[in-house]
Nucleic acid binder design. Structure first.
Lengths: 221, 221
DNA sequence: ATCCGCATTAAACAAACGTTTGATTGCTTT
DNA sequence: AAAGCAATCAAACGTTTGTTTAATGCGGAT
């Protein structure tokens, strides 16, 4: 058992507490107790509560997007022609599931936190996604577009966002859902992975406007 | 302009404040100020803060699931054979978009709140979904299963949940995303509707296990 | 006119919050 | 041995929190 620094223990405890009961109930005293350190130590190391939360998010997000970018690089360097859609999707989705399955990276906790941060519309998170990680997201969108020639840019944009939503949502619900199923956690993880990749590929492969029979769009209560 | 009761003003203000800045920052004093009433009036009418939040969620969720159920009933009474998948999906998805488009029902605010409540893993919300609205959800799952004969129950379960995730996520991001697009809010709404139904239909229509070429599931950092 | 029940109000409550202070520790450098 | 420094600690800071109290206003029934 390796001994962790105070900073690491604080970050880990913050992660665990947020994953367990959300951002609302998170208090400095909870964190310090859980991390077996002093209350003032948090402000000493991180300055403020908000700064602590930002550090917690950045630590894992950096790893996640590094992994995604690495997988995409390997993919695009491997062949000249446009990559297979399924491979691009796996490069995007699987790093999230790998992290979810690796206790050293926060396990399923981090994805829960991410879903919560999304829903909270954390200004910090949105800024991060539209600056620090924007290039990664753009590269994926471009790769998907290249792999789906019959689809226009706008449709790819929408469907990619739907998939991110499904990924985020299901990761957040991972623990709860796995308990109601009849599988081991490992089985559940593998199933989720396959189902999600299949789902994403199917959704992105389909032609636009499967049926145009509209004129039945409800608009009143 | 109709005059609203104090209870209604409090509920509306709670909705607006949560949609604007989340559950974390919500305080009783904010609500009372916004609703032009006294601080103690909230506890008088609702008992506690948590009870107020529960009432706020129930008010809109009841309408949402009533609309969904009504649409499904109409659909299933209309014909003997299994309904078209697209129609079932529309019965589930469109009520959410109708509410999002109707200011009298909270407009886009309520969907944002719903996404936040999901992410916050509100015990109350989960209890509600697995008790009060469980029958509606089960009926939709069954209808989808009937409309997708080649798919097994488990796969339908997964994909249906992915779609709920995408729906929730995109509704929560509605306002932010519509600002970065070059459309009017009405156009954006209609586009979102079509894209989402297409997306869901494509995802559910696809056969299971599009490609079995696995053995490349990463498992280390 | 009097009473009653409901609604509203200002004021106060204890508890919990994030943050700051100032003393103290333990280790490294002079 | 002494000085320097980052890290830790208990204690207290001033706010803000959700909730409660007790007084007041107001309309219909007695």
């Amino acid at each position: 058992m390796t001994v962790l620094s105070t900073k690491e223990r604080i970050l880990n405890s913050t992660e665990e507490l947020v994953a367990e009961s959300g951002f609302c109930d998170l208090t400095m005293r909870q964190i310090s107790t859980h991390a077996n350190t002093n209350l003032a130590a948090i402000n000493y190391h991180f300055g403020s509560k908000q700064s602590l939360i930002n550090h917690m998010l950045e630590r894992r997000l950096d790893t996640l997007f590094e992994m995604r970018l690495k997988r995409l690089d390997e993919l695009e360097n491997g062949s000249e022609q446009p990559c297979l859609l399924r491979q691009v999707l796996k490069a995007f989705i699987e790093p999230a599931l790998v992290i979810s399955n690796d206790e050293r990276m926060g396990g399923q906790r981090f994805m829960k936190i991410l879903a919560r941060a999304y829903a909270e519309r954390s200004d910090f998170l949105h800024e991060l996604l539209s600056s620090r990680y924007a290039n990664v997201i753009k590269r994926f969108a471009a790769a998907i577009e290249r792999a789906c020639p019959p689809l226009d840019e706008q449709t790819v944009f929408w469907r990619f966002h739907f998939i991110i939503g499904a990924l985020t949502y299901v990761m957040a619900d991972f623990g709860a859902a796995s308990k109601t199923s009849h599988m081991s956690e490992q089985e559940f993880f593998a199933t989720c992975n396959h189902q999600l990749v299949d789902f994403a590929e199917a959704a992105l492969s389909a032609p636009r406007r499967l049926s145009e029979c509209q004129a039945d769009t409800a608009s009143s209560a």
